[in-house]
Nucleic acid binder design. Structure first.
Lengths: 121, 121
DNA sequence: CCGGATCCCCAAGGATACTG
DNA sequence: CAGTATCCTTGGGGATCCGG
């Protein structure tokens, strides 16, 4: 998959790659899931260090606002990529980490990274 | 890269995967490049058949409007993913095809597709 | 400390009419 | 046929203030 392929090779393979049996494209929902100004950065921070508290994430992602961080984390949790662990203490403590589903995105990031290193100056 | 890895493996590898030497993340610009409601569908159509004329693309992507298709194609051409070939005939004819840079996205689509087939019901 | 609730802004998305 | 030009709508992104 890594060397440059001819257009004929590409066309021969593409239907099995980006189209499933029922005719749906599995790529679109994944791209949509990773959209949003802060999501990739949040995932990246949780890759480097995990778990992370809300305040730690906010500090790393400055100048993100509380609202934006809360919304992004909720969506990531809703998509099953991030796990939220709440401890009922005073003062409150909440820790975020990647799920297995989130960690399984690594091959995706790897492929994108390879492409980016080749084509992004 | 394909079997599930432990979180320790993941953390050990991630910095080399989604962070380059200069500290920039090469993933973000690629995701941004693929954003937009119609771009992935356009790329997909050009994978299946190429070259395609403006009207053919418009027909395949119904109910896309002229404005949206024009904008998306211009951005894709500006990013070097799509090639535009104009023939000075009457009536006018313009054909679009993927560049090598665009075809090289196949490993990315493949990785996303694998993830999607595992996690998207 | 970790958010929720509101209100605002602007760019992306889109409908419609027109043209070389 | 392959677009342009124009105007309109929508929702993601964000600032600010409030609460358990």
């Amino acid at each position: 998959m890594n060397q440059t392929m001819t257009y004929e090779d590409f066309q021969r393979r593409v239907s099995s790659v980006i189209l499933t049996e029922n005719g749906n494209c599995p790529v679109t929902p994944v791209i949509q899931m990773l959209q949003g100004k802060w999501k990739l950065q949040i995932i990246y921070e949780l890759c480097i260090q995990s778990p992370m508290r809300f305040g730690e994430l906010k500090k790393m992602l400055t100048p993100i606002t509380n609202t934006m961080l809360t919304n992004a984390l909720k969506e990531l949790e809703g998509d099953g990529l991030v796990h939220r662990e709440q401890y009922n203490e005073i003062p409150p403590r909440v820790e975020y980490s990647l799920t297995e589903k989130g960690r399984d995105l690594l091959p995706v990031f790897y492929a994108i990274s390879q492409w980016g290193m080749k084509y992004i100056p």
